[in-house]
Design a protein around this nucleic acid. Structure first.
Lengths: 335, 335
DNA sequence: CTGTTAGCGCGTTCAG
DNA sequence: CTGAACGCGCTAACAG
């Protein structure tokens, strides 16, 4: 309603002076005028027009948060996504940036967002959109990828030590006496994250002479879609005694299915999850899981992005966050 | 990079013509020029500057999505919030609006967002921020409140039939032979939603001569904080045989706690949740719940908002969405 | 059908 | 310390 110009008129000063007060250049304005102007701003409830500001500055404080999904998919139904996005939003606001959340599969949409809004930075998550490379703008805007294992020139990375995650799970299960172990993936074999976790699992199991047959790799968390497959695997006499799941979400689902098939968890089937979401303590039995901290990951990601926004000469960075096992009640010691 | 002006220059036409092509006023431009300009736009990857557009139009296609929470709270850890916000985002994009998600407890922040971005509409959720009334701008911008039971002049509402929800749960439990019933709230007694659900529960139970004593009303889903209280309630000889919970989330938590206390669900304690989130089918036993559809709710909300944006003369509306019982395995028939 | 002209609200020189 | 003037990229009358 009221504009900078009106404030200036009311205060009897120029627009520049008001602008300086708003932007904290208080050294360039006399004490009393600062006071006067600030009072006026408060009284009239003046709020700077962000569009005008962005236009004049040829830039914004928007940070695009890109999630991968189709137009009519609600990716926040997945609790890990929800937790991570929520944390990103929170940390961006803390640093005074404004999240522009977008869920898409189309790299051109991303490009339009970046250019159209003059975005200050880009955050991309868990993505296997390989044609991200086609987004030429991406090389010119500070970008941090999370859980992405393909290279994007100029982009920084915050990853998780997924391989160690798989290893931890494998060693734990083997240590508990399990010799027949299956794996539930998120999006096998498309997801690099899954691939790493499975790799870690297999490598840690090799010394024990344990194999994870392909038949025991369930490709996605959509267990209903793989019900027949699961029935076969769990019904066989030489069935796995344990499963490592690439998400708590799917671990919970697996436990459900197992119970429906008449298997008790952990007595008949042990399960290890991944993520350590609140969900773990809500289900029965409480879920033993490979823990990561979504909040810290988001904080690191935002921090890295902000540093690169503030100093555009910084070279790309790469951080890997650790994981640890959180032992609860879903794994039984065998033999 | 390239601007409308440059496209105009390259095409040898005026800026107006290019603008018309961009905005789909194709009737005002000759066929061949349209083609020429569209080609040019594609070739040079031209993307309109949204800040400039918003400035010139004195408005934007931003819709503020306001969630209630403190600065360092991740409200998406709550699966219902996550599901609903995700659905809102999805439906806004479908209608070509851009979500501006904000989590705050401070009404001035909301005011700044609305004014600063020239927001087209506002969506506010589950809020008991009573000083929303202080946001003068809100009466001038189309606003839809969800799950808010206080009045905001000019604002529209999309609500859930919470009272019936409580009633359904009560009738079901009573019908299953339960006579001692407790309630787990979300934020009792601050949340009007809780109040309605509890009211419905009590009213449906009254004909059976059943009371829900205050001592059996657990104020929030943070069950750990109420552990002693719960221990007392569940440990008493005349303990409740069933609980109605104001969220699936807390129902899951209650089941966990009950199991820890040595009670089997549903044999020793029956539980009814609220929301019907994916979570219901993940826990053991699968949760019987009062179902609402977050996706449809979001669609209705967005639809109502968009209608009010497009026709500012529309009077405030009020819709109430229904609920239904989804029966699973967490309630046992008594006697 | 097309071009010219004014702003939109603000930041940023540059003189004073 | 202050102000006038220009421009950011685009839309919207208004002429032609």
């Amino acid at each position: 309603m009221s504009s900078l110009k009106e404030i200036a008129a009311a205060a009897g000063v120029s627009m520049t002076t008001v602008s300086n007060v708003i932007n904290g250049n208080l050294k360039r304005v006399s004490r009393d005028k600062v006071q006067l102007i600030q009072d006026l701003i408060r009284e009239r409830g003046y709020v700077p027009n962000q569009a005008a500001r962005n236009l004049a500055q040829r830039g914004s404080r928007f940070v695009a948060i890109i999630g991968q999904g189709s137009d009519d998919e609600n990716i926040f139904l997945n609790p890990y996504n929800a937790a991570y996005f929520g944390a990103l939003v929170k940390h961006l606001y803390k640093r005074d940036y404004v999240p522009l959340v977008r869920v898409t599969n189309d790299y051109r949409t991303i490009e339009r967002d970046i250019r159209g809004w003059n975005v200050a930075g880009v955050l991309i998550t868990g993505s296997f959109i390989r044609n991200l490379q086609k987004i030429t703008t991406l090389s010119q805007v500070p970008t941090v990828l999370t859980d992405c294992y393909f290279d994007l020139p100029g982009a920084s990375h915050v990853d998780l030590d997924d391989e160690t995650g798989g290893r931890i799970a494998g060693e734990y299960l083997a240590g508990m006496g399990h010799r027949r172990i299956g794996f539930v993936a998120n999006a096998y074999p498309d997801s690099d994250v899954d691939l790493r976790r499975l790799k870690g699992l297999r490598e840690s199991l090799a010394p024990y002479g344990i194999q994870v047959p392909e038949a025991w790799v369930i490709p996605s968390w959509d267990l209903e879609a793989h019900r027949d497959r699961l029935a076969a695997v769990l019904g066989a006499p030489e069935r796995p005694t344990a499963f490592f799941c690439s998400a708590d979400f799917s671990a919970a689902g697996l436990i459900r299915v197992a119970v429906e098939f008449g298997l008790r968890v952990p007595e008949d089937l042990s399960v290890v999850g991944f993520d350590n979401l609140p969900l773990c303590s809500l289900i029965s039995p409480r879920l033993t899981t490979v823990a990561q901290d979504a909040d810290i990951k988001a904080e690191r990601t935002v921090d890295m992005l902000v540093r690169h926004i503030e100093d555009r000469t910084l070279p790309p960075e790469r951080t890997m966050l650790g994981v640890r096992l959180v032992e609860r009640d879903s794994v039984k010691r065998l033999g």
